[in-house]
Design a protein around this nucleic acid. Structure first.
Lengths: 194, 194, 194, 194
DNA sequence: CATGAATGAGGGTTCATTCAT
DNA sequence: GATGAATGAACCCTCATTCAT
C-alpha cells in the first residue's frame, strides 16, 4: 500500500528501530501537510502499520510530537553552538537564538499550542524540551543583560513565550506575510536597549 | 430547560427573536465555562432547542462567536468613546485601547484562535469585527505617532495581532500569572517611544 | 448496503420509530447469533446506519438490551396473566412463572450475566426490569407459601437468582441438554414442600 | 507435567522452571485482584517477561487458569482425603465436598465462567480438571444415595454444575451477601432427602 | 421556522496472538 | 527458550452538519 521508501518490506527484529524511523518520517510529512491535529490513525495507515504499533512507539500525540522535535533538537543545538562560537555581541546572539527558536516552533502548523500547554502541564513529554530551551534562553538573556543590551526586567520565560506567541500568529498561512516580521521587530524593540 | 413552559405558544416570529437571545445567553455561559471549543450540540440541548435551530440562527461556531462578541461590542465602543473623551494623551489613549482589546479577546478561553484565523480568511463572520477594531487601533496609533508617542514603523494590524498573541499566551490557566503582564509590558516597550 | 427488509429505503421523519424498530430487529438477530457481547458497531453496520444513530437510540449495550427485553416483556406479562387466570394451584403457578422467567432469561447467549449485575448496580437500565420480576416472583411465592406449597425461608430474590443461575448454566450450547432440566428439578425440589 | 526428570538441577532449563513458577505467582495475584478477565499482557509485564514468554508457557488464558487451579488441586485433594477419613456420614461428606468445591470455584472473580465452558468444550485444558472433580462428586453422591441420603435421580455432574452456578451468583460483589447462602441451602434441600 | 433524527468519519485505546531475532 | 515488536480488528463514543418533517 505504501512501500514508498521500501524501508519496511520484511519485518526483521531490527525493524523496531527502522519502523520507528519510518513512522517519524511519515508523521513529519503528515504533520507538515495537515498540521499537528491530523489523524494519528491516518499516519499509521500511511506508514503501513497498525494503530497499535504506532501506539506502542508513541503512546499519544504529544509523545510523537516530542520525538519529532527531538529530531530537530540537533539542529537547534548546533545552531546554539554556532551562535556561541561565532556571534560575539551578546545581544545579537540572543536575537539569533530567538530567531532559531522561532523557526523551531513553526515546524508544524499548530505546534505552538501544545508547546504553550507544555509549559503549564508538566506531565507533557514536551515540557522537558521547553524547559531546556527556556534555560538556554535565560543564558543568552543574562549575558545580554550583563552587557547592557537587554532590559533587566525581562525574563527568559517571557521571551520564550513571546517567540511562541509570534509563531502562533504566523500560523495558518497568513495572507499578510509581513505581520510576523513586524511582530518580531516589535518584540525586539521590546526587550532590547537601543 | 426553561422552554416548553407554554410561554412561547402563540406568536410565530417573536419566537425567533426570543430564541436567538436565549441561545446567546446560553452560549455565553457555556463558552465561559467550557471554552469556545465546547460542543455546539450541548449548547443547543442546554438551550432546550434542537441542533438544527441553533444551526439556523448561527450556521457555524464562528457565526455564534461573532454574535456573542457583537454583544460585547457596545462595551468596547463605549470604552472607545470614553477614552476619546477623557484621555488627552494620545499614547496613553492607545495603551488603554489596547488594554480594552485585550480584555475583549480573552472573553472566552480559546477565543484568540478564531480571531487570528479571521484575519486570514475573509469569509469568517469575525473578519468584519476584527477589521473594525484594527481600524480603530489605527486611528489611535496614528494619533500617537503624530504626537511622537509611538514608533512610526508600527502598524495597527500588528498591534492588534500582538494583543491577540498576548491573550493567547494568557489562555489555558497559565500557572505563572505574571507572564501575560510581562508580555504586555514587553509589547508596550516595543511600540512606544519612551 | 443492507436493505434486507426494505423498511428503510428513504428517511422520512417517521423513520425515527421505524429505525428504532429496525435496530431492534437487527440487534435481536445479532445477539441471538453472537451472544450479547457482540459488537455494537457491527449491529449498526448491519442495520445500515451509522454508529451515532445506534448510540442515539441506545446509549449503551445495556440500554439496547433493556429495549430488547422490553419487547419480550409483553410476552412475559401475558404469561403472568395467563398463569394467574388458569392455574389454580399456587405452587404450580409459581413453578410455571419460574419456568417463564427461565425462558425469558435465556433469550440471548450471555444474558444472565448483565441481569445478575443489574441486581447489584442500580444504575443499569435492566435493574428496574429485574426488580419488577422479583416482585412478581415474590407474589407467587407468598401465595405458595401461604398454601403450604413452598418452604417459608425462601425469598423471591433467591428464586430469581436461581433462575438466572440455571439459565447461566444452560448457556453456551451445552452438549448435555439434560443438565438444565436436572438443575431445574433440583431447584424445584429445593423450594417446594412435597 | 512433561518435564521428564527433575535431576538436571543446574543449567539451561532451570530458568524455564523458575519463570513458570514466577508467572504463576504473579498471575495468581493478578487474577485475585482483577478477576480472570484481566489483561494477559499486564501479567507478563508485571512478571518482567515478554508476552511471548508467557504465551510459550501457557498458550492461552485457560491454560494459565488450569495451571493456577492445579496448584490448588492439592488443597482440594487433601480436603477430599480428610472428608473421606473423618466424615462418617456419607450425606454430610457429600455436603462438605460440595462446599469445598464451592470455595475452589470462587478462587478468582469470574472463574465459574470458563469452568462451565470447559464442560462443553472438551478442548479446554480445564476440562480434565472438571471431569476429575465430577467423578469425585459422583463417588460421594453414590455413597450418599446408597445410604438413602441423596435423591436417586440426581447426578454428580448436575451437582457440580449447581456449585458453579451458585459460585457464579456469588460473583461480582453482590450487595446482598445472604443470597449465595440461600442458594446453597436451596440446592441442598434440592438434592438431599430429609 | 423549528425540530431532532440521521450521518459517518474520526477520536484514542486495548489486547490476544504471532513470529523474527 | 526468551524476547518484545508487530499486528489489526474491535471497542465505545463524539460531534458538526444535513435534511425530512
Amino acid at each position: 500500500m505504501s512501500d514508498t521508501t521500501g524501508a519496511r518490506a520484511r519485518r526483521p527484529r531490527t525493524d523496531a528501530q527502522r519502523n520507528r524511523t519510518h513512522i517519524l518520517d511519515v508523521a513529519e510529512q503528515y504533520f507538515s501537510e495537515h498540521g499537528i491535529t491530523g489523524s494519528l490513525d491516518a499516519i499509521a495507515k500511511q506508514a503501513g502499520i497498525g494503530p497499535g504499533t504506532l501506539y506502542r512507539h508513541f503512546p499519544n500525540r504529544e509523545a510523537l510530537l516530542a520525538a519529532l522535535l527531538k529530531a530537530r533538537e540537533d539542529e537547534l543545538v548546533s545552531r546554539h553552538d554556532a551562535i556561541r562560537r561565532e556571534v560575539r555581541d551578546s545581544t545579537e546572539a540572543l536575537a539569533q537564538w530567538l530567531e532559531a527558536l522561532g523557526r523551531w516552533s513553526t515546524a508544524f502548523e499548530g505546534l505552538p499550542e501544545p508547546l504553550r500547554m507544555a509549559l503549564t502541564e508538566d506531565t507533557s513529554p514536551l515540557a522537558l524540551t521547553c524547559q531546556g530551551y527556556i534555560t538556554i534562553t535565560d543564558e543568552f538573556l543574562t549575558a545580554a543583560q550583563r552587557d547592557g543590551g537587554a532590559r533587566p526586567e525581562v525574563r527568559g520565560r517571557d521571551l520564550f513565550l513571546s517567540v511562541l506567541a509570534t509563531s502562533w500568529v504566523r500560523s495558518a498561512a497568513m495572507a499578510d506575510e509581513s505581520s510576523p516580521l513586524a511582530l518580531n521587530a516589535l518584540m525586539r524593540t521590546g526587550w532590547a536597549i537601543p
